[in-house]
Nucleic acid binder design. Structure first.
Length: 816
RNA sequence: GCCGAAGUGGCGGAACAGGCAGACGCGCACGACUCAAACUCGUGUUCCCUCGGGAGUGUGGGUUCGAUUCCCACCUUCGGCACCA
């Protein structure tokens, strides 16, 4: 007898990886005769090592791309690196390594680690955002957006991370303490002249998800983030004759405005303040400015404010109402001024009670006892009939909003308007390791675009690493000095670089043709491959990258660079792999699982199988070192069954039939699960089938054509998840190279069908018996058999069945 | 407060569309193999029980012959947003 080969992943995995690479097995090229499938997974930042999170994100994505390929699609599955960013610069400051060197050596290591996973990545398409041939086009996009009015420069109070020494976009400031998304340091405000992209111009379109299949969770996060409020813009006047615009979502409460509140930074504050009040107003502004946003926005804080001494006229009733300033009104939302309706807004109510201002009821909800402004203990924000509201009094709740807007528009004092929480995207970064902003400042011509034929503006290599809060480019002795493209006179370059999210907003396009020099991408490649069919990655990008890339696509579509409403049709998010202690993995906790070690210990296939199996992919969960043993055993049991000689016997016909049934039922389930991203049950089903094959082997089914079919289908089904061992076994069985280019097997529906079923028999909905019957049993026969059961008779206890329910193929329920 | 996701054995999880709850795996227990251990293989494993059964999918109701699944009201955990007018 031949000795059985031992499963040694370290021998077979590098061998097949080398062969696949040499053969170009995973190259994907335009082929108009086949349907394309663009499978994209979020590109990693080259931080140093590939961690288990990368594996968790990429293994199922790779497996599904492989599955789609076997289903006949021309699949492209590219990879690259989001290579600009702060950690490279921090490494430079800390260790004296040039960011470029740090980044590119990390990329080299991570590329090899990625290769050890055995993915179907087409490395010819690799794109690295820090390459000049890449950032050339990041700069070009900036210029295009600017030409089309989607970029502006503005002095404004912006979020500044004192640790990273740079400004941040609103999206990169997280949590109640408003900390930097990258390093966790609370941000501060700085007044700076910065570049912005007009993301708000696309706010409404970004709220429309009708063209894409994205998780509800992401849609909700983005919708929340964009924060659309429908309301009204109303023009008040100050007594000195200035217009004072306010925004309100409750125009129906306009007659209840008993005072107005301006943000301390509001430009009209100086003008409305009376001589008598100037001192207290100045003092209030002074202390408000000194407070951080966090202090100002703390919810438990009592409302503070001061009277300006000025008055405004409410345009609906010409009433004279006092103007206050208070820090609960934010300059950054709406117009920075509000009408205060204490009876119907809790914040205004608290303020009014604090300072003894009038509370006037103008809304009376139907189900509430008559309201009285003097005795109320809280505001009543519910909708209701309008009262004390001049010509609109008695307007019912459901008409109040629309009627008031009609009234305001007819009177010319207000109109319907929409406000968003979304802010324009601040893209300036005071850092070196990013794509330069291609702008030159000329004393005569102002901010001039670098002409297209002079792109890219190259990053200099020789810079100093000082954490000064200024871009190192600014400190470079010569780099910024240039001449104006318009007049040729001496001028200076912009020394800020772009947010790296700008570079990652279009990487899916660069993959199409990373060597292309005539534009950001080859239009032929674009027309064939785009849009992205399935996009996979972490949920943490819901309100950053995933908003930016949609904005970018829509903006470029309007400029005529790309086509279609959306860049990525289907999005699926993986969860997070936690440490064994159920905590987030971190070096300081010492709970990090290193995939390299796992590969050395178990082989990539087993790690892949376990990552696919151990949790629901969209939820993730804690790692379990003993849990992986299940995957170890599964792979080894497959190996053993398919390499051991299987003795041929004289199997019973029904055993052969049952083998085929199980194979094709499994195929049905595995196909369904791949399609629906339900990866964990793919392995369960394969394990079940394997157990059944072990059992049937003892029944002598070896050597039969049914057994051959089972082995053949089994290897094809496992190939996407465990590519190396599938290829090795496929090859050992003498099948034609490669298993990965084989078509996905077809389900034989008749083989999958059951001809004998177990009918459940219930009495009053409780399980009392099971009977084995032919699947084709008639209703009458089934009911008769069920009633004949002794167990059923006992439970009926002599009662006559009132009703007998029959569910074909499932059960009989006797109601007695 | 608003929005979203999730609550099922000791653990991860399964149950396609309202029809056998707990597939598959981990762990555990017992057995076989072994001088022994590991590996491997086999059996068992929701809880209670008087061995007839009874209870059971976060809680309380409801719809239904029948609910993990649908409806209503809550509770808990996680994530996001938040003096946003």
């Amino acid at each position: 007898m031949k000795e059985q080969p031992v499963y040694i992943p370290a021998e077979i995995e590098p061998k097949w990886q080398a062969k696949w690479e040499a053969d170009g097995l995973y190259h994907s090229d335009i082929d108009p005769s086949r349907q394309k499938h663009y499978a994209l997974t979020m590109l990693p930042y080259p931080s140093g090592d590939l961690h288990i999170g990368h594996w968790y994100a990429m293994t199922p994505s790779d497996s599904r791309a492989r599955f789609m390929r076997m289903r006949g699609y021309n699949v492209v599955f590219p990879m690259g690196f989001d290579a600009f960013g702060l950690p490279a610069e921090n490494a430079a400051i800390k260790r004296g390594i040039h960011p470029k060197e740090w980044t590119y050596s990390n990329i080299d290591r991570m590329r090899e680690q990625l290769k050890s996973m055995g993915t179907m990545i087409d490395w010819r398409r690799e794109a690295i955002s820090a390459d000049p041939q890449y950032y050339h086009w990041s700069e070009w996009f900036f210029t295009q957006l600017r030409k089309n009015g989607l970029v502006y420069r503005k002095m404004s109070p912006v979020d500044w991370c004192p640790h990273c020494n740079t400004t941040l976009a609103r999206e990169q400031v997280w949590g109640e303490d408003r900390h930097c998304e990258r390093c966790g340091t609370p941000v501060i405000k700085k007044d700076l002249e910065q570049w912005f992209f007009r993301t708000t111009q696309y706010a409404d379109e970004l709220l429309d998800f009708s063209h894409i299949d994205w998780p509800d969770r992401v849609q909700a996060l983005q919708t929340n983030w964009i924060g659309r409020s429908d309301g009204t813009s109303v023009v008040f006047f100050t007594e000195s004759g200035d217009t004072l615009d306010i925004f309100t979502t409750r125009p129906d409460t306009l007659w209840g405005a008993t005072f107005m509140v301006l943000a301390p930074e509001h430009p009209l504050v100086g003008k409305v303040t009376s001589k008598e009040q100037k001192k207290v107003v100045d003092a209030y502004i002074h202390q408000a400015v000194r407070q951080t946003d966090i202090q100002r926005e703390a919810l438990d804080k009592d409302k503070t404010g001061v009277f300006t001494g000025g008055y405004a006229i409410n345009p609906v009733n010409n009433e004279r109402i006092p103007i206050w300033i208070a820090d609960y009104v934010l300059m950054t939302y709406g117009t920075g001024a509000i009408m205060a309706v204490p009876a119907h807004d809790q914040r205004d109510f608290e303020f009014a009670r604090m300072y003894g201002l009038e509370v006037r009821v103008v809304i009376q909800p139907d189900d509430t006892p008559a309201l009285d402004g003097n005795s109320m203990t809280e505001a009543i924000p519910a909708y209701g009939a309008m009262v004390n509201s001049g010509p609109l009094s008695d307007t019912p709740a459901d008409l109040a909003f629309d009627r008031t807007i009609e009234f305001l528009e007819e009177s010319g004092i207000g109109h319907f308007t929409v406000n968003y929480r979304l802010r324009d995207w601040l893209i300036s970064r005071q850092r070196y390791w990013g794509a330069p902003i291609p702008v030159i400042y000329c004393p005569v011509h102002g901010a001039v675009d670098v002409p297209e034929d002079q792109l890219p503006v190259m990053l200099p290599d020789d810079v100093e690493w000082l954490p000064t809060g200024e871009s190192p480019l600014k400190l470079h002795p010569t780099w910024k000095y240039t001449t104006c493209p318009l007049c040729g006179e001496p001028a200076e370059r912009e020394t800020d670089t772009m947010d790296t999210f700008m570079c990652s907003s279009w990487y899916h396009l660069r993959y199409l043709s990373p060597e292309y020099t005539m534009g950001p991408f080859d239009p032929q490649e674009y027309d064939y491959w785009m849009p992205v069919d399935t996009y996979t990655g972490g949920i943490e990008h819901a309100t950053m990258h995933l908003i930016y890339t949609r904005f970018f696509h829509k903006a470029l579509r309007d400029i005529g660079v790309v086509k279609g409403p959306e860049p990525m049709l289907q999005l699926r998010n993986q969860g997070i792999v936690l440490g064994e202690d159920s905590e987030k993995m971190s070096k300081s906790r010492g709970n990090v699982i290193a995939p390299d070690n796992l590969v050395a210990q178990y082989g990539a296939d087993t790690v892949r199988a376990y990552l696919v199996f151990f949790a629901r992919w969209d939820l993730g969960g804690p790692w379990n070192s003993s849990g992986i043993e299940g995957s170890v055993r599964w792979v080894r049991r497959v190996w053993n069954l398919f390499t051991e000689p299987v003795p041929a016997g004289k199997p019973a016909k029904h055993e052969l039939r049952s083998l085929r049934r199980k194979v094709h039922q499994t195929l049905q389930r595995v196909t369904h699960d791949f399609e629906n991203f339900e990866f964990n049950t793919i392995i369960s089903s394969l394990m079940e089938l394997l157990n059944e094959m072990y059992r049937l082997r003892e029944q002598g089914v070896g050597g039969s054509s049914e057994w051959e079919e089972a082995v053949d289908i089994y290897l094809r089904m496992m190939a996407p998840v465990t590519p190396h061992v599938a290829e090795e076994l496929w090859s050992r069985l003498g099948k034609p190279y490669s298993v990965h280019t084989q078509p996905w097997p077809e389900v034989d529906e008749s083989a999958a069908e059951e001809e004998q079923i177990t009918l459940v028999v219930q009495v009053n909905g409780k399980l009392r018996d099971r009977i084995d019957v032919p699947a084709a049993i008639s209703e009458a026969e089934a009911k008769q058999l069920a009633l004949a059961s002794s167990s059923i008779q006992r439970h009926l206890d002599g009662r006559e069945p009132k009703k007998v329910i029959y569910v074909p193929g499932k059960l009989v329920n006797i109601v007695g």
